[in-house]
Computed example of a mutant assay.
Amino acid sequence: MTSDTHPQDNIEPAREVDRYEASSLTFSPGARAIIEDLSGGSGKLHVEVVGAKQCHYILFHYPKSLSDKFALEDNAPVLVRSMCRNHHLCAFRTTVIKNLKAPVRLLILRYPEQFDALNMRRYDRIESVVRVEIFFQGNDYKGVIVNLSRGGCRIIVRSEPGVELPTLNKDNEVFLIFTLPGHDEELTVAGQCREVNLSGERLSVGIAFMFLPDKMAQIIDDFVLDLKSWLRL
């Protein structure tokens, strides 16, 4: 374990927004997206991709409970945010072709000409405050996840009366259990310590996730997307 201090544990590198031609934009059925009504009528709505015809249109499905709220008119301007296949946050402006409510609820949008992508690092990461249990060598410790991506997280553990800090070192393997706000499912994730820094009674650990199932990765992606959208990042 090292004793170096890291005052910039939660400081993100400069974020660059890159613009691409829409011909490189792909949509996978089942992918989640957030659509913001730029005319101010419907607010932000969570939808699911049904399909798309490149350079022509994109189809989204939305829940029955949103049928009344989803009052988008033809040609209404919208902003769409979604996780791209490269796990960057993609965004583009477009307009509504048709909002169908029967026989199925489908929102048809015009395919954009261009889209923006937040290029930050290999995996999109967000600052967070999520309680976590860390299991290591038969003992469990309580900490807080201070930033998170599908690739890993950073955890802060502080010493408590009668509880020693875990003696973690680089390459040690741990198990983490946590629940993300807005999601009921408890996540149990294996991870490997990539960076361990001790400063007084504060332990900072950078952890890379190991063997993360697709379902858990999607839950983390959804959480990051929701939080970035709410923060307007």
Rank of each mutant, 00 (worst) to 15 (best):
T2H: 02
T2V: 05
T2G: 05
D4Q: 03
T5P: 08
H6N: 14
H6I: 09
D9W: 12
D9R: 11
I11W: 02
P13I: 02
P13L: 01
R15V: 12
D18T: 07
Y20P: 03
Y20H: 13
A22T: 02
S24T: 11
S24H: 08
P29M: 00
P29Q: 02
P29S: 04
G30Q: 08
I35F: 07
L38Y: 10
L38G: 04
G40V: 09
G41Q: 06
G43M: 04
L45S: 00
H46V: 15
H46N: 14
H46I: 15
E48Q: 14
E48L: 11
I58G: 01
Y62M: 09
S65Q: 10
L72R: 01
E73M: 02
D74T: 03
N75T: 01
N75E: 04
A76E: 01
P77Y: 04
L79I: 04
V80T: 05
R81S: 07
C84H: 06
C84D: 06
H87L: 05
H87V: 06
H88R: 07
C90T: 03
F92Y: 09
F92V: 00
F92S: 03
R93P: 00
K101I: 08
A102T: 14
R105I: 00
L106G: 00
L106R: 08
L109W: 00
E113C: 13
Q114V: 11
D116R: 13
M120V: 14
R121P: 08
R122G: 13
R122T: 12
S128N: 05
S128K: 13
E133W: 13
E133Y: 14
I134P: 00
G138H: 10
N139L: 11
D140V: 09
G143R: 14
I145N: 01
N147I: 15
R150G: 08
R154W: 13
P161Q: 06
P161W: 06
L165H: 01
L168A: 02
N169P: 01
I177F: 04
I177H: 06
F178W: 04
T179L: 02
L180D: 02
H183G: 00
H183I: 06
L187P: 03
N197Q: 08
L198T: 05
S199K: 10
G200H: 09
G200M: 07
E201G: 15
L203M: 09
L203E: 08
V205E: 09
I207C: 14
A208M: 13
F209S: 07
P213C: 09
D214Q: 14
Q218E: 14
Q218W: 06
Q218N: 15
D222Y: 10
L227D: 10
K228P: 04
S229A: 14
W230Q: 08
L231C: 05
L233T: 03
